[in-house]
């Protein structure tokens, strides 16, 4: 069973019952606070380590909101809330913004600490698995393939780089901002936001588009990278035969040999042969 599904009941149980819930629609996140928290979310993994993972980063991102607590920076509620938010936490860095928004609102509304802690624990699994599937396994490879396709179409270095960065970051920054706003909006009911169709079905659709992009991009990019020789001459024909054969071999070797290690060996042999002979 996917991790998302395993964690979903726990998350629902922790957030849906009335004593745990924030009001359905909270006030909108003030602009300055939103900008400050969003900027900090870009550095959420700044102190990532094997003991508390992204925990300190969550505390760092939530901190501007905690200043609204009674007593401000020197108040006991501020210190207690910051301590609660700076312990172990694990999530995908982009979707962690959803947790940051929800936890910030819960702290500002001074929800009982034990409920915040349970909610925080329940969020880890879903935010990790949904984010990994959507961003690392779907959106990033899709944008990479677009960049390779642009290279294959003969775009300039500036065009390829800007095209890739623009496309990727529309999704990246959009997801972080959406997460922060929806986390704040839904508070402890944030599980409803995780049911968003893009999070649930996005990877499947992006995967299909990526398959098309990959198929189109590779022949065009290979043709340009080998110097744009006539496609029916011996070397391009050889590449057209050798590439799929090697790809099939790599798929069959899955788990036993990573592709970059194979390329390392091939290129080392080529360099040695060419220089030493």
């Amino acid at each position: 069973m996917p991790e998302t599904e395993r964690n979903a009941p726990a998350l629902r149980a922790d957030t849906a019952s009335p004593p745990f819930a924030s009001p359905p629609d909270g006030p909108p996140l003030p602009g300055a606070l939103r900008a400050s928290m969003l900027l900090r979310c870009l550095a959420i993994q700044g102190s990532w380590n094997y003991e508390i993972l992204v925990g300190n980063g969550v505390g760092f991102c939530v901190e501007p909101a905690l200043r609204q607590l009674p007593g401000g920076l020197d108040g006991q509620p501020y210190k207690a809330a910051l301590a609660r938010q700076s312990v172990y936490f694990n999530a995908h860095p982009y979707l962690a913004a959803l947790a940051v928004g929800a936890l910030a609102r819960a702290e500002v509304e001074q929800v009982a600490p034990v409920r915040i802690e349970r909610f925080r624990t329940a969020l880890c699994g879903p935010l990790g698995s949904v984010g990994d599937r959507l961003v690392w396994a779907a959106w990033l490879p899709a944008c990479s393939l677009v960049a390779i396709l642009l290279f294959g179409f003969g775009w300039s270095p500036l065009g390829v780089v800007l095209g890739f960065l623009f496309l990727y970051n529309v999704g990246h920054l959009g997801l972080r901002d959406w997460g922060l706003r929806n986390g704040w909006k839904h508070g402890l009911r944030v599980a409803t936001a995780l049911g968003h169709p893009v999070l649930q079905h996005g990877p499947r659709y992006i995967g299909r588009v990526s398959a098309v992009l990959g198929g189109l991009a590779l022949p065009l990019a290979v043709h340009r990278a080998i110097g744009g020789q006539p496609p029916l001459s011996p070397i391009p024909m050889g590449v057209a035969v050798a590439t799929p054969l090697l790809a099939v071999l790599l798929v069959r070797l899955q788990g036993r040999a990573e592709g970059w290690r194979v390329v390392l060996l091939v290129l080392a042999a080529l360099v040695l042969y060419s220089v030493v002979r």
Binding site: G214, V222, L250
Partner: peptide, 9 residues
């Protein structure tokens, strides 16, 4: 060809 094969795989 070798890097393109890795990408295809």
């Amino acid at each position: 060809a070798s890097v393109a094969a890795v990408a295809a795989a």
